[in-house]
Structure formats: C-alpha cells, structure tokens
Design a protein around this nucleic acid. Structure first.
Lengths: 329, 329
DNA sequence: ATGAAAGCGCTAACAT
DNA sequence: ATGTTAGCGCTTTCAT
C-alpha cells in the first residue's frame, strides 16, 4: 500500500498538497489537484486511518453499548442508530455487555483510549459513580435507559406513563388482579415503569401482590416459565403486563396449552410492538415505542456534543408510547 | 490524558521501559516495573490506541459484514462471533450492508485503510471479482454464504443437503405439490438449497412448478404475502419449504386465518430453529443449523490467518443441519 | 498557491 | 536491564 509520500513524489508535489487534495482544502491549483487525483487513482491509494486518527485526534467512531444484539428491541435500535450515524460520516461500533459490569467498563475505556469519539449507553450495568469519571474523555449520551441524576443527555421513553397506561387499560376492562414482569429492578427505566403500574393500581384502589411481580423476563422461554408459575398459583392474576413481546408470546402460548381463554381468563399486554405480535394466537396487544425516533435523537444528541464541544449537561428527552390494540387484552 | 512520555518522566525511566511494562516484556527490573505501574495507576493512564495501531500496524479489529442486524439469524451469529473473538483479544465491528453493493465495498475498504485486520463476509452482495482484489490487504473469510471459486476459507452449511432433506421429509409424508421460498437467487447458498430441493423432487419423480417458487422471503410480513398468493392460486401446493422461521410463522398464521388445516392441508417447514418456532400454533418443524459452531469456526479461521500469515487458500468447511420435528409438517 | 518541518503517541532496533 | 533514536503516515502550522 503506497503512502502519502509516494503519492507526493509521483505527483511532483509536497505531501502537504496531497493532504490538501485528500481533505478538499481550497488553495490547490486545479492542475495539481488533477495530477494528484490521477496518481491516487492509479496507485489505488487510500489514507491510513490510524495515522489520521492519531494526528487529528478524531476517530469518527461512536460506540453503542447494549446488553446483546440477539434481542429484537436492541437489534432494531442498533440498525437504526448505525444507519443514522452514517448520515454524519460516523460509524457505530456495537458493544455487547452481556449484562456484565466489566464489559461496560471496557466500553467507556474506549473513550479514554481515544478509540471512539463518543458513547451511547442503551443500558446501564454499573453505578453511575463508576461511569461519570469518563466524561472528561468525551461525551456520553444515555438512550433508552434512564438515570436519576446523570449529568448527560438522556433520550428515553416515558416509562411511567407506559406502565400507567397499560395498567389502566387492564383496569378499564374490569381486571382487579394484575401481574407485572420486568427484566430486573436495578434498571431505573424498569423502576419507572413499575411505578406507573403501581400508581395506576393505587389510583383504582387496587392492591398489588408481591408474588405477581416476575423478574428476569426477557425471552419466550421466560414467558413459558412465568406462565407455569402462574398456573401453579392458588390465587391467580387475570391480567399480566409483560414488558416485552417475546415474554408475552411465551405466556400466551403456554396459557393456551393450559386452556386459558385469552383475554377473558388472562389478558396479556406486550411491549415493543415487534413483529411477533402478529403471529401469536390471539395476536398481542402491545405498547408501541418509537424506536426509530429514539435512535435518531440519540445520534443527533451525540453528534451535537461532538461538533460543538458544548458543555455536557443533563437534558432529558422523554418520548411517549401508545397502545396498539390487537386481541390479547 | 497523560502520554507515555509523562509517565516515563514521572517514573524516572525512559519511555521504552514504560512501553515494556505496558506490553509485559521481560527484562524490566521488578523495582522499576512497580514504580512505573504505580505512576500509571496514579495518573490514570491508558495508551492511545491509534498510536499503537499506527506503530504496530495491527488493529485487533475484525469486521463482520451482514445484511442487517435486525434479523434473528444474523443477530445470533453476531452475538456468537463477538463473544468468540473476544477470546482472542480481537474486537468485532459489525457492518450492515442493507443489501447494498456499495456498503459491502466500504467494508472491504476498511482492510485497505488498515482499519481492521481481517474480514468475515456473512453475505455477499458484489461479484467476487470486485472483492478479490482486496485480498492483498488482508485475509477475508466467508461464513454462511458460499461462493463457487473464491480462494478463501469458506465456513458454511450444507445447503444442498438441507434442501434435499427437508423436501424428502415432505415427500415421505405424502406430499406431491411442494413450494419453495428463498431470499433471492443470486445467493449461491440459496441456489444450493434450491438445487437440493429440485433434486429431491426429481428423485421422487415429482415436477416443480414455477409459480411455487417465492422469492424475497425474509420476514413475517413476507410470509403473509406468500400465503395470500398461495390462497389465490387455483392449483395450490400442499407443502412449503420456507427457508426461514419468520416466513414460516407468517405463513402459518395467515393459513390459519384462511382455515387451512396444518399440516394436513398445508405442511410448513421452517429454517434456523429460532425461538419463534415454539410460539406459533401449530409449532414449527424446522431445520436446525449450528450457528454457534459456524461463528466459532469462522472466527478461528480468521484468527488463524491473522496469526500465521499463512497463504490464503480455498478451504471449505461444510456443516450439517438436522430437522427438528414439531407440528407443522 | 505551495512546501518544509514539526509532531500526534507509540514501539522496536540498536547500542550500551 | 535500560536508554537513545528513528519512524509508523498523516495533518497542520508557518513561512514564502
């Protein structure tokens, strides 16, 4: 692979001039520009990225951290973020934490190593105390996940509202015994959603049962497990807020197996509006969240910080979700 | 962020020594090593990655090219490749082609720019002729997708066998009118699968019908569309090889809507053994492919090339798939 | 408009 | 065992 020096030599110009041509700088005579361009083409030259990065101290990379990519919601988010970043000539590197603190710390380390220019955290494994120190190395934006006081832009859904709305829907349909699923309870977003759920319950004068809160609900298999648990209970809920369409699908399938009438005996509300909602029987009533919008806003936020080098500050953008009515509620 | 020079100064050693400590070279007195380590810790120092890459001409990055990440099969593949690469201290960068030739060319360009050390192509948009020139910049491995004469390692499934086996299953069950779905027909892998299908047909003395070949079959929605088409036909197939569980799910759902008895009136065979197979009604009989194995072997292959700088040569590893019997066939 | 020269932060050959 | 020095390939002052 030729270097800029060789191109300069062959074009009979200095490497400064070649660099100018490469970067579309003005003040290069048309004649030399053409000559350089020809040599570049002939030699099949492309500048070395590492050298450029070292010199300019910019990588044009944004790291995005997610639990793992084999998850319909995060996959969709990544797809959109990548496409959006490309609009700004930035490339997205996906980093999977696999729910490990340590892997998340490796992501923020990338900032320190000047391996990426900025970071978007779509989940949060560590305490914010352990992350905030990295802010001095570059901007961090939080998307999807929220945090109470992180002094960074946060683009998120109104989880409280979603929790409230969904629960309210059950109540309107006459349910009094409502269950709730979540990934885990250390996620602030999940907490907010649960708060909305609890509020709707208390606003309606309903009690909540401890054993009707199911955690570690991610997959179809988890849905099976949860339904098995419900089936074995003496006092059963008649409605369940799943927080995830995969889980809803699993519950519906297993409930049918146990001959439950859905939604009469057990109403099931999904979350995410994934395509799986349309293939279960009955089809899944779910909460639609604006993933594309979230992706776009998150990329815009990080790009803004990158370009303006403006001071990072807390700035929460909250997005509304809406209920998509199908058959399971 | 401090540089290696500052660390050297503060430790009263040369930067060579610091570099040695950093890279675990021998021949550093324990005393100096400790001193350096302390300063590094105190100063919160991490070496600049771009500088390292420029100097060492290694990036420790592997680019993996896929159509897009929001696809259950590719998501699973990526998850496994990323995890596997980490074992060798390599990081995977996912690049999505969105089925565009031009995006795929950007991926191979990364090799030329020294932005990645090697590439794994999991799909192929361009003619091999337009890719092979990049081999002089670094190793390329093909995984999942195949190519007739590409002179690189190819880790793939036995698509012919899968096509044959699946079709044979239908025939054993007494079907004579069998339809076939595929993404597109410029994919060599898809071609092989189709060949297996055709061969099984002809071995059984069965004809194939042009209008029973459905292309552009990727998603649940495509499944709906295909089922609509089938339903409108005067001469309908009684079995369909879908090539993808999402498509199978869509077909099953829509067929139920039209009151088809599955598998009696319409047998449906999936592909990939995704978790969605277990939530449809009836559950999807499918072809299980060893994704984890493919990921592992592909990473091993590229690492091998990277380490040994051995000559690239064609070397095809073919993996068998197996039928998972559920209810839809 | 163009070029000479400095230097980004690091590693490694070479000398001691 | 340790340090001196060169240089990876590029961009950017600064001078002309």
């Amino acid at each position: 692979m030729p270097t800029i020096d060789e191109i300069a030599k062959l074009s009979n110009v200095s490497k400064t001039t070649v660099s100018r041509v490469l970067n579309n700088h003005p003040y290069v005579s048309e004649e030399k520009r053409q000559r350089v361009l020809e040599v570049i083409k002939k030699m099949d030259y492309i500048p070395n990225t590492s050298a450029r990065k070292l010199r300019s101290n910019k990588t044009m990379f944004i790291a995005v951290s997610i639990p793992h990519v084999d998850h319909p919601f995060f996959a969709r988010l990544m797809k959109n973020m990548s496409a959006e970043a490309l609009q700004y000539q930035y490339k997205v590197i996906v980093f999977q934490t696999f729910y490990q603190k340590q892997n998340e710390l490796k992501v923020v380390d990338l900032l320190k190593r000047k391996e990426v220019d900025g970071i978007i955290l779509c989940s949060l494994e560590n305490d914010w105390e352990d992350i905030k120190g990295y802010l001095k190395y570059g901007p961090i934006v939080m998307a999807n996940e929220v945090h109470a006081e992180a002094e960074v832009p946060v683009i998120c859904y109104d989880e409280f509202e979603a929790g409230y709305k969904g629960t309210e829907l059950f109540i309107k349909k006459g349910h009094h015994s409502i269950a709730f699923c979540c990934d885990n309870l250390y996620s602030k977003a999940q907490m907010m959603r649960k708060k909305g759920f609890m509020r709707a319950l208390s606003d309606a004068g309903l009690r909540f049962h401890d054993q009707w809160i199911f955690s570690h609900a991610f997959t179809i298999q988890d849905g099976f497990r949860i339904m098995d648990q419900i089936h074995s209970m003496t006092e059963k809920p008649t409605a369940i807020f799943t927080g995830n369409d995969q889980v809803a699908a699993g519950i519906i399938k297993r409930a049918s197996h146990y001959q439950y009438k859905i939604p009469q005996q057990l109403a099931v509300l999904g979350y995410d509006n994934q395509s799986i909602c349309e293939v279960t029987n009955p089809e899944i009533t779910t909460i639609d969240i604006p993933v594309e919008d979230l992706a776009k806003k998150a990329i815009e936020a990080i790009i803004h910080l990158l370009n303006n080098k403006s001071v990072l500050k807390r700035e929460v953008v909250t997005m509304s979700s809406s209920i998509i009515t199908r058959q399971s509620v």
